[in-house]
Design a protein around this nucleic acid. Structure first.
Length: 395
DNA sequence: TCTGGGGTCCTAGGACCC
DNA sequence: TCTGGGGTCCTAGGACCC
C-alpha cells in the first residue's frame, strides 16, 4: 500500500493531510505509534485452539494428498512441521514426503473468519482504530509515543490473545504502518519488536528487498539484476534507475526503503465492502472437453450467486478465467447493463465468456484447462428500491 | 518442487465524450 | 476535411498478498 501519482489530476491531494502525519526529517513531532499484530501460523493455531492435543505436534492445514498426482498446497504449517521444511504454499505431495508423520487438518475458513472477528473485538479494547489488514493481521493506532510504553502495550495485547483466545501472535511497533508490519515479521514467532523513528533506517538497511511489502519475486529479480539486493541498496538507488526498473511505483518503494512513511493509518479504509467475490476450481485432471467446463461453471455460478445473496450484494460484472497446464492464464469479462442478483444472469454471462475463451483456445493450441475461475465484480449492496425499469415485472 | 483459493491494486490501450 | 486537449470508462493482463 503506497501512495503514488499524487499530482495526476487530483489537486486536492496536494494539500497537507488533515491529521498529524509522522515525520522523520525536521524533528519528531507527535510520533504516535502503530502496533501491528500478526498471528502466528494462524490456521494451525485456530485448530490447536479447538484440539489442545495437537499442541507441540507437526500440524498441517490442507488436504492430505491421496496419490502422487494430488494437486493442492499447504495452507498453514505449525512450527514443528516447519522444521521438516514444510511451509505455506508448498505442494501437498512434497509436504507429505518431507513430513509423513504430520497431522493433517482440513481447512475450515468459516472458523478462521469467526476467530478473526473475536481477535478484532479483543483488540478494540486498546484502540478505537483497529484496521484489519488481512484475516490474521491488524494494525492499531495506540496514541503512545514512547518505546517502553509501546512495548508494554504490545505485551499486554499479546498476553490477552494468548490467555483469552489461546492464540500465539507476533507484534511490531513503529509510527509507520509498513515498518510496523516488517517489525512484526522480524519478531516471529511469538516476539515483540518496536522500532523507533531513529532506529528505522538501520533496522531496514540490511534487510533483503523481499522484506518490503509490495516486493515480490518478479520485482526482487529485476532489482537483483541491477545489483540491488538490500533495502539499503534500494534506498541509495537513483531515481532514474528506479523509474527504469519499476516505473512510478519505484519511487514509492524507495521512499519506504529510506524510512519515510507510506500512508498513515488514518488513510487506510477500514470497512469498505468487498470489490469482488470469486470461486476457483482446479481440476484433478486437466479438462479437455467443453462439457466438463460447462457443468462446473454452472455449479460455480449457482454457488457464487448464493454467496452474494447471503451477503446482500448485487453484481454488475462477471469474469471468467482459465489457466492452462503451463500456468499461463486468460480472462474475459462482461459488464452487465445493470447491477443484478440471482444465478441466471451469472450462468448466462459465465457460459458465454467461457465459451469464448474455449473457442479461442480450440482455434489455436488446444491445451486442456487446469483451472477455471468465476468472479463477480462491481459489487453493490442490495437496496429495497427499484434499480431497473423492468423490475416492475419481477415485483 | 511444482505450484490452491481467495483477494487487492496498478497499468496500458482503446473507445468515447466534450 | 482534418483536427487539439482534456477527461472518463472499459478491458485485459500482471504483480502481489495471505
Amino acid at each position: 500500500v503506497f501512495e503514488t501519482d499524487l499530482s495526476d489530476g487530483h489537486p486536492e491531494k496536494l494539500e497537507p493531510p488533515r491529521h498529524t502525519r509522522p515525520q522523520l526529517a525536521g524533528g519528531a513531532v507527535c510520533m504516535s505509534y502503530i502496533v501491528y499484530v500478526d498471528m502466528d501460523a494462524y490456521y494451525v493455531s485456530c485448530e490447536v485452539r479447538d484440539r489442545p492435543e495437537l499442541e507441540g505436534q507437526p500440524v498441517i492445514v490442507g488436504r492430505r494428498p491421496t496419490g502422487p498426482d494430488s494437486r493442492g498446497v499447504v495452507l498453514s504449517a505449525s512450527y514443528e512441521a516447519r522444521r521438516f521444511g514444510v511451509r505455506s504454499a508448498l505442494p501437498v505431495v512434497l509436504a507429505d514426503r518431507r513430513c509423513p508423520q504430520a497431522i493433517w487438518v482440513a481447512p475450515d475458513f468459516e472458523k478462521y473468519g469467526r476467530v478473526a472477528e473475536m481477535i478484532r473485538t479483543l483488540l478494540k479494547r486498546w484502540s478505537e482504530r483497529v484496521v484489519p489488514m488481512s484475516i490474521d493481521e491488524a494494525a492499531l493506532q495506540v496514541n503512545l509515543s514512547d518505546r517502553a510504553a509501546v512495548g508494554a502495550r504490545a505485551r499486554e495485547i499479546q498476553s490477552a490473545l494468548r490467555t483469552e483466545l489461546r492464540l500465539p501472535s507476533s507484534i511490531g511497533g513503529s509510527p509507520f504502518v509498513a515498518v510496523a508490519k516488517i517489525a512484526s515479521d522480524a519478531a516471529k514467532p511469538g516476539g515483540i519488536r518496536v522500532v523507533t523513528p531513529e532506529e528505522t533506517e538501520s533496522f531496514l538497511e540490511p534487510l533483503p528487498v523481499r522484506a518490503l511489502p509490495g516486493i515480490g519475486p518478479k520485482t526482487a529479480e529485476r532489482l537483483e539484476r541491477a545489483g540491488v539486493t538490500t533495502v539499503g541498496g534500494l534506498a541509495r538507488a537513483s531515481s532514474e534507475t528506479l523509474r527504469r526498473l519499476l516505473g512510478r511505483y519505484g519511487e514509492a518503494l524507495a521512499e519506504l526503503a529510506r524510512g519515510r512513511p507510506g500512508p498513515s493509518l488514518a488513510d487506510l479504509p477500514t470497512d469498505r465492502g468487498p470489490r469482488q467475490r470469486s470461486l476457483d476450481r482446479t481440476f484433478e485432471h486437466d479438462a479437455a472437453r467443453w462439457e466438463e467446463l460447462r457443468g462446473d461453471l454452472e455449479e460455480m455460478a449457482q454457488e457464487l450467486s448464493g454467496i452474494l445473496s447471503q451477503e446482500g450484494l448485487r453484481y454488475q460484472q462477471v469474469v471468467v478465467r482459465m489457466r492452462w497446464a503451463d500456468f499461463t492464464q486468460l480472462q474475459r469479462g462482461q459488464l452487465l447493463p445493470a447491477a443484478t442478483e440471482g444465478a441466471d444472469p451469472m450462468v448466462a454471462a459465465g457460459l458465454h465468456l467461457a465459451r469464448e475463451l474455449w473457442e479461442r483456445e480450440q482455434a489455436g493450441r488446444r491445451r486442456p484447462v487446469r483451472r477455471l475461475s468465476l468472479a463477480a465484480g462491481r459489487l453493490l449492496p442490495r437496496r429495497g428500491r427499484q434499480e431497473r425499469l423492468d423490475a416492475f415485472a419481477a415485483a
